[in-house]
Design a binder for these strands. Structure first.
Length: 295
DNA sequence: CACCAGGCAAGCC
DNA sequence: GGCTTGCATGGT
């Protein structure tokens, strides 16, 4: 990968295993949206970013200095990880993963802010992606700090402190439904330090997951999403309905319990479970869905 | 109108 | 422990 700064924008050329559409459309991130004129605009780590991938594969980070690129976006996009090697390891003796990893070969697991992933995936339960995005957008618009970019105002993701001061009435404007009380409960636990990134990062996978699941509104699946997207625990293999269906179909040929599937993923993918999950998820969703139905 | 959406908690056995 | 059911809201 080569980087170049033209005085305003950072331009990446020769970025391997990197596809912006796949990255933002594999369901891990809810705050980046496609622009009508091409590219994407979103907010992360309190900053607005416009980015675009050209036909030749080059990626432009608009209005981004080298300092900001290496200080923020390099890690966000997990640039330091060799996805080619990961795909090769997953594809050894596994034609299912070989196909899925080719299909979504440009996916990267974004390293997102912990607190944002906690709330985002609490909101995701029993919900669909457009509405998840809408609820998160209203949450940020109402309670997040202003960010000025390109003559417009964007909003940062609101902190646990800000949200913990809200009442159920206050937060009803985001129309999160029954999830509203879970958001406020989690905000209080993070604001008073009962749970923190520091604490979670000091724990091994199973203890960190257990602590996350002590929050009302965080069950097995949401905890796995937070582990993977918010804590970089790449062994996590979140099992949602799509993953359940495609794993059953491609690896078992019959219905299985979540417990069985989790044990299977741990045994088969090990520390690469999270990458395997993303390739499978993208493949299951993009390939039309109907190929995931059991025959 | 019924049914569902990237689950979860609570209440049952 | 495993199983069912209600859950807010919005879309089809």
């Amino acid at each position: 990968m080569n980087t170049k700064y033209d005085g305003a924008n950072m331009i990446l050329s020769g970025a391997e295993d990197f596809d912006l559409r796949q990255i933002f459309d594999c369901g891990q991130c809810f705050r980046f949206n496609a622009l009508p004129e091409g590219g994407y605009l979103g907010v992360a780590f309190g900053r607005a970013l416009r980015t675009e991938q050209l036909q030749n594969g080059d990626v432009i980070f608009y209005d981004t200095s080298p300092e900001e690129f290496y200080g923020v976006w390099y890690d966000f996009f997990d640039m330091g990880t060799d996805y080619g090697a990961i795909k090769r390891r997953l594809s050894e003796n596994d034609d299912v993963m070989k196909g899925a990893a080719e299909y979504g070969g440009g996916i990267r697991i974004l390293r997102q802010e912990l607190w944002e992933t906690v709330v985002s995936f609490i909101i995701s339960q029993s919900n669909n992606i457009p509405r998840i995005k809408g609820i998160i957008e209203r949450l940020c618009d109402n309670f997040g700090d202003e960010i000025f970019y390109g003559g417009k105002i964007y909003r940062a993701f609101p902190s646990p402190e800000v949200l913990s001061a809200l009442s159920l009435g206050d937060i009803s404007v985001i129309r999160a439904g029954f999830r509203d009380k879970y958001i406020l409960g989690a905000a209080r636990l993070f604001a008073d330090g009962t749970i923190s990134g520091e604490k979670l990062r000091s724990l091994n996978d199973s203890d960190a997951k257990r602590l996350l699941m002590s929050v009302k509104g965080i069950g097995n699946k949401v905890a796995d999403c937070v582990m993977l997207f918010g804590l970089g625990r790449t062994a996590a293999f979140p099992i949602d309905v799509w993953i359940k269906r495609i794993t059953e179909e491609r690896y078992f040929g019959s219905e299985q319990s979540v417990k069985t599937l989790a044990a299977f993923a741990e045994e088969k993918f090990g520390d690469l479970g999270g990458y395997a999950q993303q390739y499978l998820f993208f493949y299951a969703r993009e390939d039309g869905g109907q190929r995931c139905l059991l025959t």
